Amino acid sequence: MAAAAAAGAGPEMVRGQVFDVGPRYTNLSYIGEGAYGMVCSAYDNVNKVRVAIKKISPFEHQTYCQRTLREIKILLRFRHENIIGINDIIRAPTIEQMKDVYIVQDLMETDLYKLLKTQHLSNDHICYFLYQILRGLKYIHSANVLHRDLKPSNLLLNTTCDLKICDFGLARVADPDHDHTGFLTEYVATRWYRAPEIMLNSKGYTKSIDIWSVGCILAEMLSNRPIFPGKHYLDQLNHILGILGSPSQEDLNCIINLKARNYLLSLPHKNKVPWNRLFPNADSKALDLLDKMLTFNPHKRIEVEQALAHPYLEQYYDPSDEPIAEAPFKFDMELDDLPKEKLKELIFEETARFQPGYRS
């Protein structure tokens, strides 16, 4: 834990890192770190609560700039109880001085990944967590956004079992017609939660990839272990087919990539493993919904509104309290091709509203 900075004593240090967030945020305490930044909790002297502050230093890398800009653009436009918001952003007053960006968010005690390492969940908890994931996802999908990296560590939890989806750095506007060349190379989302079509096709992607990830998360809540822990690309596919069985001819016809289709045709026939054999203690309604989410063919996979209306979630289902976005989200430009200098300018502009004396 960093010592509390005395008023006016300059930035606090946390594990050798400068955290320049005073005077409003003090009493910093280390939480963890990701690929390009550290997260601390801090005391907000204005709202009198502890908050989470993520320090991001992305400006050396085009990919990190892209992810940072995506996350900020999306989260500043989203407003939903099951999606983490941005409360404040701290950065230098000029673009030349801006080396880091500090993002202030609600402090959540833990995440689903940490929880599943230590606790076996009751059916009631599984049901409530799944409902909140789908409630947040309904809003995301209504904005025409794909999260693309749903996994237990991106689901934040607090002691009252509130759940918030975080990390929109890989999110995209849904565009089933656009052929994202190089899709697989830039697709760094965790393999275990990846839909089979991501490994088999490169053309376009749809909201059904997020539903697949939610199915993987439900299976993990039922058993405290990942359902498809593939060691590499082909191993991942083999794990999936080992449980779902061989795809039907109709399902194979959806695979545009001939090499991928021929690979699947070359494999020995596998039978589907019954879900109640894998999860003998699970609620039968939970397994019915799991089956509809972990469907090989993305066109037959359940959609988020149908999933919310499934009998497993009937005690929570309330369409009048499951809000959607006001308007579909649009990125003005494809960020993939922009140089990091341009992305830095866009991050600077996007964060201006939090600067003292800002006038829109």
Rank of each mutant, 00 (worst) to 15 (best):
D288H: 02
P196K: 05
G37D: 15
L76K: 06
K203A: 10
M13Q: 04
M98Y: 06
G215K: 10
Y263R: 05
E197F: 06
C161L: 04
K207W: 07
R24P: 03
Y102S: 04
L294W: 07
P196Q: 10
L258Q: 15
Y131G: 03
E186F: 01
L155H: 03
L112R: 00
I84G: 00
L294H: 03
C166A: 04
L338I: 06
N82I: 15
N144G: 05
V273C: 04
S213R: 15
L308P: 00
I243C: 09
I140T: 00
T185E: 08
K207Q: 10
M13N: 12
S29H: 01
F183S: 09
G85M: 14
T351H: 05
I72C: 01
G22L: 06
N224D: 05
D179F: 12
H61D: 06
L218T: 11
N82L: 02
E81V: 12
D288A: 10
N271I: 15
E334R: 00
Y64R: 15
M199N: 05
Y316T: 06
E33G: 12
A171K: 02
E96C: 02
R359N: 09
L146M: 12
N45M: 10
I126Y: 03
H125E: 05
H232T: 06
I133M: 08
E71Q: 02
L267E: 05
P176H: 07
Y43M: 06
I165Q: 05
K114I: 15
D337F: 06
N27P: 03
C216W: 03
A9V: 10
R261Q: 13
H80W: 01
Q105F: 10
T351L: 07
R191Y: 01
T160E: 05
I126E: 11
I53W: 07
E220Q: 08
R135L: 12
P339D: 10
Y30Q: 06
L290V: 05
H141Y: 08
D44G: 10
S266K: 07
D251C: 08
K138D: 05
A42D: 00
L156H: 03
T160H: 05
L308Q: 13
F183T: 03
Y263F: 15
H61Q: 14
Y139A: 09
V304T: 03
G32C: 14
F348G: 08
L244S: 10
A327W: 03
N47H: 11
G22F: 09
F228Q: 00
P58H: 15
S142D: 01
Y43K: 11
L75A: 11
L252M: 14
S360I: 11
A325P: 02
P311W: 00
R301A: 03
P274H: 09
G136S: 05
A327K: 04
C40K: 12
I211F: 14
I126N: 11
T118S: 14
K272F: 14
R359F: 07
Y64N: 15
D321Q: 03
K117Q: 11
P323C: 02
L184E: 10
P23Y: 03
D179E: 12
D106V: 13
D337G: 00
S223Y: 15
P152F: 03
E12G: 14
R50A: 12
F129S: 06
V18M: 09
I89A: 01
D167C: 03
Q62E: 10
T159Y: 09
P226C: 05
I302K: 05
V304P: 10
D291L: 11
N87D: 00
W212M: 05
R194S: 15
P23M: 01
H141T: 06
P196D: 09
Q355T: 07
V101R: 06
D332W: 06
L252A: 07
D210C: 08
D318E: 14
N87P: 02
D288W: 08
T118F: 12
I256K: 07
S122A: 06
S41R: 00
E33T: 02
R194Q: 13
S202R: 13
D235Y: 14
I217A: 05
E60N: 13
I126Q: 04
L252N: 11
F168W: 03
A189F: 04
D44Y: 15
L116E: 07
Q97N: 06
D111R: 00
F19P: 08
M108F: 04
E326A: 13
I53N: 13
H239M: 00
Q17T: 09
V188P: 04
C127S: 15
L146G: 03
G230I: 01
K55I: 15
P23S: 09
E349R: 11
P196N: 06
P11E: 09
Y25I: 08
I217L: 09
A352Q: 08
K114R: 11
K342M: 06
K48V: 10
Y139G: 10
Q249A: 11
P93C: 01
Y102V: 09
D44H: 15
C65G: 01
I243T: 06
G34Q: 00
G136Q: 00
Y139V: 10
T295W: 03
E350Y: 04
A9P: 04
F296N: 03
S246F: 09
I103C: 06
D210H: 07
I302M: 00
L184G: 07
R277T: 11
R353Q: 11
I255Q: 10
Q66R: 13
I256V: 07
G85C: 15
C40V: 08
H310E: 09
A6C: 08
Q105D: 14
D162H: 06
M13T: 14
F348E: 12
E314I: 00
D283K: 00
L75C: 11
N276H: 11
E350W: 00
F329Y: 14
G32R: 08
N123G: 13
Y316E: 06
L264N: 02
A286D: 10
